[in-house]
Nucleic acid binder design. Structure first.
Length: 109
DNA sequence: GCAATGACTGGAG
DNA sequence: CCTCCAGCCATTG
């Protein structure tokens, strides 16, 4: 498969994330059968902003539940607001209770 | 084609 | 919990 198709697969999985839940780059990559493609998942997110239909990119965090993502402004503050709007608490750029809010795509796919 | 880069990860100190 | 490091791979100069 080419990289473009991989990005589409990433968007597909991200769109499956339930409201108020989050997942990690590695988890998505692994769900697509490419455990070493975590960085490519992040690269795909650069296209998420202009993808149609839009993908909830802000529900993707790193393996520690940290808001490693950034919006066009270069900060993760907007991401935090979006997450809090869904009932997720953020403390020091980390998702509170991340272990329980974590959604494993492998369970759904 | 090689070297650097990055929305990552897991292990070691 | 934090930092550093090696492994990872598409993209860019």
């Amino acid at each position: 498969m080419d990289t473009e198709a991989f990005y589409e697969q990433v968007f597909e999985v991200v769109r499956l994330i339930p409201r108020g839940r989050v997942t990690s780059y590695g988890a998505v990559a692994k769900a697509l059968g490419a455990p070493n493609y975590s960085r490519m998942v992040g690269r795909a997110m650069q296209f998420a902003g202009k993808a149609k239909p839009p993908v909830p990119w802000y529900r993707l965090v790193n393996s520690s539940g940290t808001l490693s993502a950034r919006d066009q402004s270069g900060s993760a503050h907007r991401m935090q607001e979006l997450l809090e709007n869904e009932g997720i608490e953020i403390k020091n750029d980390r998702i509170v209770n991340f272990k329980k809010l974590f959604w494993d795509p492998l369970i759904e796919i």
